[in-house]
Nucleic acid binder design. Structure first.
Length: 591
RNA sequence: UGCCCGAUGGUGUAAUGGUAGCACGAACGACUCUGACUCGUUCUGUCUAGGUUCGAGUCCUAGUCGGGCAGCCA
């Protein structure tokens, strides 16, 4: 076992895990059950990765379970495409780490009638993912939610309101000014029951009426001023079909969904702190027979030079700033995956930033460090030249091939090797030669010596220029006795550069990605589209060592001295290789 | 001029009334057939003012600063 894998990762600790640990110590719950509840209205991004790792992490630390649940109560914004991408992304992120904690439900299952503490109750039991199972959907609870709404009306805790959306807003008041009771607030239970049933039956147009909680229009907490429970929307639902024309709102549906699934800890982001009293109000108002779930909030992830807003990411997609949600420049999980970032690196990163209630901005270097650390241990080393310049080894005959052993990964305990061909003509990186070198330049310069990695030391004898004065060829002498195993193998030179044989290489398209934005906080811009980095993608035709000919998606490479690369999942095909640069190597010289 | 949440080096985070630690970063150095990796040295911190206490980053009060809340979005 390597040092990397044997070094036990420190057990994460944060204020939410402390609370859960306390509950476990108190034996408060039979099992810890969390949930990851995305709305299927966009692709998951790196901010969601933090929430996924928190929720699944807590579940795995306590032999618990974490349900994937689609919070799909607003059909006008949601789409089946997103439920598919989200399911894929979640499973990819937790694979080999917390997949045994993932809670699904039998396909098509709805909450079942059960008896809890002698009272009638509803509960939806989880199953392991697999054939015949699917994620949970809040929309599978619409029947129960409707029944619970009836119960709220019967208890005098909800009423049908005829105020228009505009008037509802006016009656709500402002943060520093109390609202006013709706004129429909004191309807009889019978009238509310009748009206709500007719809302469900489709008798009223969108926005004509709503079902509202009856709490306190003068509350200093805006979310307690009789927030809406149901609105009328005459649209079909991507999962529930066309059965409904009234749809529950988040605050009403979420807490009850948690309850129906037996969630113990409902973890969300800080903007819901103000909603917590409402979360509790709904559950407590119904006199439910089982232990109630509780909500805990943490600060969402903010990462420098990246956007974590589904709405803005959608805009980048719609305005074709990127090629799609899974463009390798996107901070979406699918984009990061396509770029070549391992799930383990993502997990290490989001776990490392911690969980607090402080609204922070994490430096890009922290993310980059996590990616490089992860990749350094596993990426196979290869030689590739991105921007070639031809170099002729004048003392090697045309047609002669000298085989050299190249190490596949020096980080391995017992590194393996492969053969690379040294020939008379090779390509080196244009950047690795300077006719007029700056101070402390270790690479090739007129009259200078440098080592061709895994081959031998060479000396630059002559520059060949075209009519315009541009250098077309570097003519060098190969010191063949400095090859590995040869008498002068230990000869030292300051610089070692990468290269590929000009006659035994393959060509490939390589996509060089850079950060998508030019400013650290694109979200703070008046118009984030104006700070898109025009150089976020550069495409080059690179020369690769021949062994890369059959490189496939999923394989992780380090091109020595350049960075980490992986074949593109969508566009790379056998015979026409296309690679994405995941990230460069750290370069302490460039600056 | 309401309510809620927060504040520890440049950044992120730990310390649960008892030695302010870790990571990233930066600088310098060692090593190097990757200017990578690795290793070494150095750098910088408890928002302010009171209070409680033998002792406060931690508890209390006030202030300052930052964030959130007036969707029939989540």
């Amino acid at each position: 076992m390597s040092d990397v894998t044997s070094a036990a990762a420190p057990a994460p600790s944060d204020f939410i895990r402390d609370i859960v640990a306390q509950h476990v110590a108190e034996n408060r719950y039979a099992k810890i059950v969390t949930r990851f509840p995305p709305e299927p209205n966009g692709y998951l991004h790196i901010g969601h990765a933090k929430s996924i790792c928190l929720n699944f992490g807590i579940a795995r630390e306590h032999q618990g379970q974490c349900n994937l649940r689609f919070d799909d109560t607003n059909p006008v914004k949601e789409d089946i495409e997103y439920v598919q991408s989200i399911t894929t992304d979640v499973q990819w992120l937790i694979a080999g780490w917390a997949d045994h904690c993932l809670g699904f439900k039998p396909k098509g299952a709805h909450p079942a009638k059960v008896t809890s503490n002698g009272q009638p109750d509803y509960y939806l039991a989880p199953v392991a993912p697999g054939a015949g199972s699917e994620a949970f959907f809040a929309s599978d609870y619409f029947d129960q939610l409707y029944d619970y709404a009836i119960e709220l009306i019967r208890r005098g805790k909800a009423y049908v309101c005829d105020l228009s959306p505009e008037d509802t807003e006016k009656y709500r008041g402002a943060p520093d000014r109390p609202g006013q009771d709706s004129p429909f607030r004191n309807r009889s239970v019978a009238e509310n029951l009748d009206l709500f049933q007719r809302m469900k039956a489709g008798e009223f147009p969108d926005g004509a009426r709503s079902l509202r909680s009856k709490i306190d229009m003068a509350s200093p907490n805006m979310w307690l001023r009789d927030p809406l429970l149901y609105r009328i929307r005459h649209v079909a639902h991507h999962h529930a079909g066309d059965k409904w024309c009234i749809y529950p709102l988040y605050d009403y549906a979420h807490c009850l969904s948690d309850y129906l699934e037996g969630i113990t800890h409902s973890i969300c982001t800080l903007e819901f702190v103000d909603h917590r009293p409402l979360y509790d109000w709904v559950l407590e108002s119904l006199g439910l027979p089982r232990t109630l779930p509780h909500q805990y909030e943490f600060a969402k992830l903010n990462l420098a030079y990246t956007l974590v807003s589904k709405r803005k990411l959608l805009q980048l997609v719609n305005e074709k700033v990127v090629t799609g949600w899974d463009d390798p420049r996107m901070p979406t999980i699918s984009g990061l995956r396509r770029r070549g970032i391992p799930a383990s690196a993502l997990r290490t990163f989001v776990t490392g930033v911690g969980v607090t209630k402080f609204d922070s901005l994490t430096e890009a270097a922290v993310f980059e460090n996590a990616v490089r650390n992860d990749l350094n241990a596993v990426a196979q080393r290869r030689l590739a030249v991105l921007k070639p310049i031809k170099l002729v080894l004048t003392n090697i005959a045309a047609g002669e091939v000298i085989e050299c052993d190249a190490t596949n990964n020096p980080q391995d305990e017992n590194p393996t090797t492969r053969k690379v061909a040294l020939t008379r003509e090779v390509f080196i990186e244009a950047e690795d030669f300077a006719e007029v070198p700056p101070p402390k330049y270790f690479r090739l310069k007129p009259g200078g010596e440098v080592r061709l990695k895994y081959a031998c030391i060479i000396k630059l004898d002559e520059l060949v220029k075209d009519a315009a004065g541009a250098i077309t060829e570097l003519r060098c002498t190969a010191q063949l006795d400095t090859r590995s195993g040869q008498p002068n193998a230990d000869k030292k030179v300051k610089g070692t550069i990468h290269w590929v044989s000009a006659t035994q290489c393959i060509e490939a398209e390589v996509r060089l990605y850079d950060r998508l934005f030019t400013v650290a906080e694109p979200a703070a811009e008046e118009n984030f589209l104006k700070v898109v980095n025009p150089k976020s993608l550069e495409v080059v035709t690179a020369k690769l060592e021949a062994s890369l000919a059959f490189a496939r998606h999923g394989e992780l490479y380090q091109f020595e001295r350049l960075g980490y690369f992986t074949p593109d999942a969508k566009d790379s095909v056998p015979g026409k290789l296309i690679l994405n640069r995941t990230i460069t190597l750290k370069d302490t010289w460039a600056k």
